[in-house]
Computed example of a mutant assay.
Amino acid sequence: MPTSDGAHIDARGLKCPWPALRVARAMRSADAVTIEADDPVAPTELEALARQQSWTFVAKGAHLFAIFRAPEDV
């Protein structure tokens, strides 16, 4: 069951698909993840993962990204 706590992942130096795999694993227990990833393919891979899982993807900088679950309607 995911918690509301966010996780931070430092994936600098890792080539895809490793950053996306780390996000997928972190999202098992968190509602939000920020990730630093410098692989040029990372933004595309992370955005595709978020879209596939119905998560929100935000590019916060050149190598900083946020992925989070949309709040559920109550």
Rank of each mutant, 00 (worst) to 15 (best):
A62H: 07
G61V: 00
L49R: 09
I67T: 15
L64P: 00
A62V: 12
D73S: 14
R22T: 00
A26T: 02
C16S: 11
L64T: 07
G13Q: 08
G6I: 04
A24F: 02
S4W: 11
K15F: 10
R22W: 01
A11I: 12
A62S: 13
T3D: 12
I67Q: 15
G61C: 05
Q52Y: 13
D38K: 03
P2K: 14
A24K: 05
A37P: 04
A7K: 14
E36Y: 07
A20Y: 03
T44W: 11
H8M: 07
E47V: 05
L46H: 12
A42I: 04
I67W: 15
R28W: 12
V33P: 01
T44K: 06
F65G: 01
S29N: 08
A32Q: 11
L46M: 06
W55E: 00
F57I: 10
P19S: 01
R25G: 00
R51Y: 15
A66T: 13
V58D: 13
V41F: 07
V74R: 12
F65P: 03
L49M: 13
L46K: 04
G61R: 03
I67M: 15
L46F: 07
R12V: 08
R51V: 15
W18H: 09
M1Q: 07
A7R: 15
A32V: 13
L21Q: 12
L14R: 08
L64C: 05
E47I: 06
S54F: 03
H63C: 08
G61D: 09
P40T: 07
W18Q: 14
C16V: 12
H8G: 05
V74K: 06
K60P: 00
C16N: 09
E45S: 10
T56I: 12
K15Q: 15
E47T: 10
C16A: 11
T56N: 06
D38I: 00
M27K: 02
L49N: 04
A37G: 01
P2L: 12
A42R: 00
F57D: 04
A70C: 06
M27E: 00
G61S: 08
C16E: 14
E45F: 10
V33G: 02
Q53I: 06
T34Q: 08
D73F: 13
M27L: 15
A50L: 00
A30C: 14
D73V: 13
P71M: 10
A37R: 03
F65D: 02
P71S: 11
G6N: 09
R22M: 03
R12Y: 07
S4R: 13
A42P: 00
P2M: 11
D38A: 03
A42Y: 00
E36M: 11
A37L: 04
T34V: 06
I9Y: 01
I35M: 02
